[in-house]
């Protein structure tokens, strides 16, 4: 993807956010489809208290793309778990990797992502220190998710809130206002 195209996507994402603030939840604008490349329209960026996905990179040749899992303003996070639903004929979640947001002290940050029947699941967590969590600032990168394009089409990549949670080191839920996914277009 060219730098120009990326800027277009960011602008579209901003537009989607405005649209959502006015009450719409679904992004219907599929105009990112341009000349055989695939694109991801994020529902975010989110605000304080949100978790959202954002495109980090894509490799049209390898038919893969990587999404960042970002969060803002969450307090006392030990780990985050997400369940995503999407059209598994279009893409597949292959792996997850830790970002730097959960680092600190003697804990390691570990991650796991993979497919399930309805889409994919991932977990990103501190480990090796069960007594401390970390506060997340603005736009903190919790981790990344790498997907493979397995077919063509358009699909929402949406969180299932019941199984998507940020938790503290006492494993209580951290309140998250919105779990924001996005839309993949793979022509």
């Amino acid at each position: 993807m060219t730098e120009r195209a990326r800027k277009v996507l960011v602008l579209l994402a901003s537009a989607a956010l405005v649209a959502c603030m006015t009450g719409c939840y679904h992004v219907e604008d599929k105009s990112a489809d341009a000349g055989g490349a695939f694109g991801f329209e994020a529902e975010g960026p989110g605000k304080a208290g949100d978790v959202w996905l954002e495109l980090e990179s894509e490799s049209p040749a390898a038919r893969t793309f990587t999404l960042k899992v970002l969060a803002s303003g969450l307090k006392q996070v030990y780990g985050a778990a997400g369940r995503l639903v999407f059209d598994t004929k279009v893409c597949a979640l292959r792996s997850a990797a830790p970002g730097d947001a959960l680092e600190g002290g003697k804990a390691q940050v570990i991650a796991k992502g993979g497919p399930n029947a309805e889409g994919g699941v991932f977990g990103i967590s501190r480990s090796g220190d069960f007594e401390t969590s970390v506060d997340l600032g603005s736009g903190a990168v919790v981790g990344t998710l790498t997907f493979e394009i397995v077919g063509s089409g358009t699909t929402d990549i949406a969180f299932v809130p019941e199984r998507s949670h940020a938790v503290t080191h006492t494993l209580e839920s951290v309140a998250v206002a919105h779990w924001l996914g996005g839309t993949l277009n793979a022509p």
């Binding site: 985050a80 778990a81 369940r83 699941v121 977990g123 967590s125 480990s127 199984r163 949670h165 938790v167």
Partner: peptide
């Protein structure tokens, strides 16, 4: 939950070394 998912992963990560 009858499925192994991210929450199970976080719980197991927390419990490591217990």
């Amino acid at each position: 939950s009858n499925e192994v998912d991210g929450l199970d992963f976080v719980y197991a990560a927390w419990a490591m070394g217990g």
